[in-house]
Every structure is written in C-alpha cells, then in structure tokens.
C-alpha cells in the first residue's frame, strides 16, 4: 500500500467532498454537490464513511491538562535603564542629565575660555599640553606628577590679559607721578612766593624801586630766578650801607 500517493475520488470531486463535509462550501456549492450526491453512489458512500471517521477521531480527547507555559524573558540592559529612568523623580532625572552632559563634555575635552580675546571654544579628543614661557623669565619647574599645562588656544588670551594689565599699570603710575609733580610744584611756588614777600618787605623804598626795574629787565631778558635777584639786591644794599 503506497501511502504517499494522494488519492482522488472516482468521480474527481474529492475537494468538493471535503469542502462539503466540513461545512465550508457556499450555499451554491452545497446545492450543486447535493445534486451530485443524488447521482453518485461512490460520493455518498465516502461522505457517510468520512462522517463516521470524524466521529471516531473526536473520541480522542485530551487526556492531559495543557501546561501553563512560563517563559522568563529577561529585559535587555537598555530596557532596565529605561525602567529605572521612568521610576526616577524629576530632580533625579535633572541630576542624571547634568552628570551625563558633564561626562559628555569631559569626553570631548570641551574648553570654554572668556578673556581679552573674547570667548574661545575648543574641543578635541586629546588635550595638547603647552607650557607658557614668558620671555625673559625662568621657566617654572613643572611637577612631573601633576603637570601644569595650558592649552595652546589659551596662550593668546593670557598674553592679551597680561598686556592689558601692564598698560593699565603704566597709565596709573604716570597719573600718580603727574599728580605728585603738580603737588610739589605748587608747594615750591608757595614757598618761593612766601620767601619773595618776606624779602620784599625787608627792602627800603629805593631798593624796591631798584627791584622793580630789575624784574622788568629780567623778564625782558629771561634772566635768573627772582630769589637770586633779591639776593643780589640785598647784597648791593649792604655794600651801599657800608
């Protein structure tokens, strides 16, 4: 008996037979096959036999209770992170976000500098250490354990700041010197004026007239200082008296 060979009913309507048997025929198909059954004894016989087979097959009931399948599905790493994040309060999320942002910036070695040259922004995977050496100074001794490094991009800004500070310091010192000079000149003028008034008060009438003429002449020639002139007048007066 070759069981692999698929069979066909004698009249060739095996497909219609099983369709009708299992109630999947349309009303039109059912009517058509029922008319065929009246004329085909073989199909009637098969239909009856198959209905019996179906009844017998139904006698095989499930002897066992179907199991309750327990499949443990472990969540993935990202699912766990997602669930933890969902359970975290708002402040925790903000803190987590801040730490994450800092970690990201540190990872990219981001550097933001505000200085004389404006705001500078730099980023890179690896820092390039550069020592700042001011001309004319001894390079600082660098600790090999914790090297002091300044990024190249910061050097210009540092130089600009130093130059600005030097300019401001020079200007401030010049102003202070000017103020001191003015003060000293003023003091000197006052002293000279006092001495002049004192000397003039000691002169006699004819000496004062002589002094006035000398001042007039001196101012015309651009001669020596007034005190010197007074000294000359006083010494001349002494000689006259003698």
């Amino acid at each position: 008996m070759n069981m692999k060979k698929e069979k066909q009913s004698g009249c060739g309507r095996s497909e219609d037979l099983v369709t009708y048997l299992y109630g999947e025929a349309t009303p039109v198909e059912s009517s058509d096959f029922e008319r065929h059954l009246k004329a085909c004894a073989e199909c009637r016989d098969e239909l009856t036999a198959f209905q019996s087979v179906r009844g017998t097959l139904r006698q095989w009931e499930m002897e066992t209770v179907p199991p309750r399948i327990d499949i443990a599905i472990k969540p993935t790493f990202w699912q766990t992170v997602k669930e933890l994040f969902a359970m975290t309060p708002v402040w925790g999320k903000l803190a987590f976000g801040g730490v994450g942002a800092l970690a990201l910036l540190a990872l990219f070695n981001v550097s933001v500098t505000v200085g004389g040259g404006g705001v500078t922004f730099s980023a890179g995977w690896r820092p390039q250490p550069v020592q700042v050496v001011t001309p004319g100074t001894v390079p600082p001794v660098v600790n090999p354990v914790t090297p002091v490094t300044v990024r190249t991009t910061d050097e210009a800004a540092v130089r600009a700041i130093v130059a600005q500070l030097v300019r401001e310091s020079e200007k401030r010192q010049a102003e202070q010197l000017d103020a001191k000079l003015v003060s000293l000149t003023s003091k000197l003028d006052n002293r000279q004026r006092a001495e002049f008034v004192k000397a003039v008060s000691q002169l006699k009438q004819d000496q004062r007239l002589h002094l006035a003429s000398l001042i007039q002449e001196n101012s015309r020639r651009g001669g020596p200082d007034l005190l010197d002139l007074i000294g000359q007048v006083q010494s001349a007066s002494v000689e006259v008296e003698e």
């Binding site: 698929e6 009913s9 095996s14 497909e15 198959f50 019996s52 087979v53 009844g55 097959l57």
Partner: peptide
C-alpha cells in the same frame, strides 16, 4: 488550498480503512 483538501481527503481515506474495524467493533 486545493493541496490541503487533497491531503485531507487522502488522509481521511486511510483513516477510514484503519478505523472502520474499530467503529464496527465499538
């Protein structure tokens, strides 16, 4: 679908032969 029906028909035919003794006896 036609293959499904053909296989079903063939299978039922063999089951008929196999089980007709059982049905008669039951």
């Amino acid at each position: 679908v036609s293959t499904v029906k053909t296989r079903l028909y063939t299978g039922l035919t063999y089951m008929r032969k196999r089980l007709e003794h059982v049905s008669d006896s039951l």
